[in-house]
Design a protein around this nucleic acid. Structure first.
Lengths: 179, 179
DNA sequence: GGATACATGTAAGATGTTACATGATTGT
DNA sequence: ACAATCATGTAACATCTTACATGTATCC
């Protein structure tokens, strides 16, 4: 889950300029809690974004202590680029949190059509991966259910199936809203 | 997901003494592929386990190049201790992979009763967390479904519900096998 | 005025990534 | 002999964790 913290910060700052402390609080008090709120991760990440000129200290820096950041034009471009990356098999396996983060930011930053395109890709990648898992279990033997290793396998498979059901439902819902 | 690679290696070595290369291959060719097979992660991890005296080079080191490791008595104790740790809220949020890894190793290392105990804890922790999420969405407002952020929230919720269904089914199945 | 929350920061250490390097073994 | 695969390792870099440190604002 390489630099997704940086993009999470970027997306939140895009919604509303705010200080590192505010961002950290969101990582504790909202379901974005799989991001670390530790100062040792958030503040260095903000500094990296600042050095990269993706964010800038808000001009209205009347507050003495709080350092409020806003997203620059370059930062907006970087965010949009990230949001529009294709969905890969690796994303399915490693980057579920990152994928759903992208989904949450897509609509407000790139638009409904891009969101639908993302969902199509997500659905396709998920379905392909589920097929892969089924093939594996077929070769593995039919006694998947007999031992706990096989049950663990089913745990993973059923999780992906739930995700697939979600993508299908949401894609249809958003498509209908478009018309 | 701090040191779960080390425990994955330990558990696999417990199943069968083998070399780092064999372990890495399992991370590529089996659904344990969310572990990194890169030499830069696996070999240093094996060295750490060796330094800690949890594994030892297999005495029958007839092979010239391959370094086959086996689990020591101390390593078995460490593995069993790890497997029997209580299931926490943090595990649910951060350590799903680690939890399911523990499940897969529990039966063969600690026994069926310990596996059932684990499933009970898992189920309880999951149910509590799902309640927490529902409470959050209730306070958040009833219009969860209206925007993509709310849909992303549902994605997470439905994933946890699928996991809960799995724990219930598997717990019942294993309990029946016991009788 | 003292405790608590706000707000940012740094340092040490652990882990993982990518990329490179090196030799042994096997197949043709 | 040559290529491909086997098998291990290292170095540089990035990121995150834990713990500590520091000062400000607010509440009672």
């Amino acid at each position: 889950m390489a630099p997704s913290l940086e993009y999470a910060l970027l997306g939140l700052l895009r919604q509303k300029p705010q200080a590192g402390y505010d961002l950290r609080k969101q990582f504790v008090t909202t379901p974005m809690w799989h991001f670390s709120d530790s100062p040792g991760s958030v503040y260095p990440a903000l500094r990296r974004l600042h050095v990269r000129r993706w964010i800038a200290p808000s001009a209205s820096n009347g507050a003495r202590q709080r350092q409020v950041f806003r997203v620059t034009a370059a930062g907006r471009r970087a965010l949009v680029d990230w949001l529009q990356q294709p969905v890969t098999r690796d994303d399915i396996i490693w980057g579920q949190n990152e994928l759903i983060l992208r989904f949450a930011f897509l609509d407000e930053n790139v638009g409904r059509l891009a969101t639908l395109k993302f969902l199509e890709e997500f659905e396709r990648a998920l379905a392909a991966y589920i097929r892969e898992l089924r093939d594996f279990s077929a070769n593995f033997g039919p006694n998947i259910r007999s031992h706990t290793g096989g049950l663990a396998f089913l745990y993973g498979l059923e999780g992906y199936e739930a995700q697939l059901a979600w993508t299908r439902r949401v894609r249809q819902q958003l498509a209908e809203e478009l018309s």
